[in-house]
Amino acid sequence: MSLTTSDVQKIARLARLAMNPTEIEAARTQLSGIFELIAEMQAVDTNGIAPMSHAQDLSQQLRPDVVTESNQREAFQAIAPQVENGLYLVPQVLE
């Protein structure tokens, strides 16, 4: 199966990856090759087969509702790109 340029542009936008037209074209070719490999599984009859999300069929364990974490803002923000007054800063968000 072969992807279109607009498919690739759409995916890049969804994934927040800046790509110029040359990169889009290169990605289109490579992704098309990979999807040919993937296409092998389309022919398999999976009627009635339950999808498998986890290696083991187990249930979620529940955590007691008890506070275990303390304030580590200083340590966490020491490695942040841009902070001010305890806030992480990003370019203005418009709604």
């Binding site: 690739v8 890049a12 994934a15 490579q30 990979i34 599984m41 389309q42 498998m52």
Partner: peptide, 29 residues
């Protein structure tokens, strides 16, 4: 980036059943 693109595509609207769900079923097989 290539793998992020593959993953984004197979989960995107209209492709989930054909790719992701099908793959999870074959995973069981």
């Amino acid at each position: 980036k290539r793998r992020i693109m593959i993953g984004t595509y197979v989960l995107s609207h209209g492709y989930y059943d054909a790719y992701y769900l099908q793959a999870q079923k074959i995973r069981r097989l």
